[in-house]
Design a protein around this nucleic acid. Structure first.
Lengths: 207, 207, 207, 207
DNA sequence: CATGAATGAGGGTTCATTCAT
DNA sequence: AATGAATGAACCCTCATTCAT
């Protein structure tokens, strides 16, 4: 009995906590870390300001936590798409697609990671570095495997992965700035996949 | 009578103005727009706070001005390097080299443009969009010409240019995060040039 | 649940708001709008500076509000005294008495309206004009009625009312500058009433 | 020789000093003491800010000095008009006329004294009191003489003079707020004169 | 748990005043 | 004498954070 009630309470609490975090992501993504106020967040979540400090120690901690969580979500989603395929062509293509999907349907995720809180919170600098590092490694892995398999010639896979990460980010941000980005998604995926394959001197069959 | 805006006085004032702007670039690049305070800037420039407002109308105006000026400097420097060559291979190679030079010897420029004031000042959003647009067009021009000349196959040059801009930015930021980046500059230039040429299916002689 | 805007809480908040407004009236009356600082006000009210901005949007808005409220209070109090009588002699006498009462027992009211914020806040200019206008009309009404009733000869009632308003203000300010003004109040009332009646060529029985 | 040159220098200096003081009166009258900045004044006078501090010790001292000087000018002008006549009727009429002339042709004088710096500068409070005192005495003198001469019945001439001072001020300020006040000046003078004569129970021939 | 009144450090900005030229 | 660059105290206001209810 006490179990169940506790569970319910926990769930309720978690629900409210989650709601506030979603509100925070929205506000941080829209305004950036500094311009976003705690009052903005609690207003968006429709709770009192005191409630914020019951659930989170302070604004900065929440932001860093959100950044990490969002980064995890993005990286894992792409990673999963990449891992689910064996062939380099499809690994790239599906990975890019996964990234684009998130960008289009959860733009706040991309805003938060790429725009929201850069160069602002000291304790975030390391997190950002880690995120970029993981993102680079994410693209590097299929490349290394492809080199091992002889599918592409030997090359500085690390640098190429960096270039990929930057290229994908920019193209996606440009896409998001356009009206109705979802209509152009398919073309972008194809463009980026072919771009990538050419850039690494892939000689097999294009998609 | 001689005291009236003599050349010496004018020069001195200009010098101080420039010094303060450099201090401001430093601080903005390091902390970002919001975290940088006017007090930080005047401390860096070793003047009183009133002096800031003698030279500049307010923090935001100065920041936007600095952003534009810095963007102009970066873009013109790269543009000049690109224009000074006729062949696509060299246009890319010299353009990248110019970019890298700035990044290594004037890191604050890159910090300011790529990191410093993103997602912060409303009046900057448009400036940032313009900067990215110009950067993309900068890389797009040689591509279009190469397509016209039949040096590379027809392709979505705009999208490729976006990818180039993003790729170069990321590689450069990664380079700046390393110790002694200038030692690796030559390798990076070559890597990026080859990467670019492959990505656009260039078939001529590599550098 | 009971904590939500309970009567007690509301009352307490209103009480504090009122207390702060009284403090503000005091300070504004004493120093005038510009010389009065928000810190002066919160010190007088014994609260923190943030509390001021919790209750009021800004210094200027509060001042204008206070000015209007105070003007309303003064005008309505006098108006009521005037309206409560039918005979011109008593209308004047009771109106003047009401004015004097406020001046003596709420000197800040008079200070604020006559001294506090003149020639200062642009958004107040119109309010001040309105206040003077209403004050003039206040005295003009019984005059017009008396002319209609044939109690006094026809004359430029508007100009006379202006003169009354100015005369009463000055005499009252002079009275307030003296020690123990309440002792002289009765004499002042009589003097001013007779002064007024003579000035409008009233021929009936003096009070 | 040295004499003359010295005189010239003196005159020149005085000329500049005078120009600055006139500029200051203008600005103070228009904006009030606090809102008027030293920069406003020197801009109006077309000199550098340092020049201000060569001629005057500081803003407050200048203001107080200007206030006194302006008060002297106003009081002496009216006084002279009053003294130049023997009969009460004409003393009042010419005094009022003199006041009105100043108000219409030198509105800054009236603005400065009646509106510009009230309730602002501590060191001005005493000056203002003195000015009002002198103004009251100015009107009181002819009254006392008329009482002595048996032209009007005995009465509290002090209080009546206060009422006069206040009444004239208000009517004049109301006049200045209208378009083309000079056209109404004659009527105002007559109205105020008759108002005054009636108020003091004058029985002789009206003007 | 939740609330929101209360706090005060700190930010951007103004402006009277000084002083080297 | 005259200039105007330079100064910094002080202003208004914001906002992260606390705590009594």
């Amino acid at each position: 009995m006490a179990y169940k009630s506790s569970d319910k309470t926990r769930q309720k609490k978690d629900a409210k906590r989650t709601a506030m975090m979603q509100a925070a992501v929205q506000v941080f993504a829209e305004k950036g870390y500094h311009a976003a106020t705690v009052r903005d967040i609690v207003k968006q979540a429709d709770v009192a300001i005191g409630t914020f400090y019951f659930y989170f120690p302070d604004k900065e901690t929440l932001f860093v936590h959100l950044y990490e969580e969002t980064a995890d979500f993005l990286l894992q989603t792409i990673e999963q798409a990449v891992r689910s395929r064996k062939e380099l062509v499809q690994q790239l293509s599906y990975g890019i697609q996964a990234y684009l999907n998130i960008a289009i349907y959860e733009p706040a995720v991309v805003q938060l990671l790429l725009v929201g809180g850069v160069g602002t919170v000291p304790s975030l600098q390391a997190k950002r570095t880690t995120f970029r590092e993981r993102l680079v490694r994410l693209w590097q892995r299929p490349l290394d495997q492809a080199i091992d398999d002889g599918v592409i010639p030997n090359q500085n896979s690390r640098r190429v992965a960096e270039a990929f990460a930057g290229a994908f980010d920019e193209v996606i941000l440009q896409l998001l700035a356009m009206p109705e980005p979802e209509e152009k998604a398919a073309a972008v995926i194809q463009d980026l996949t072919l771009f990538s394959l050419r850039a690494i001197a892939f000689k097999g069959n294009p998609p």
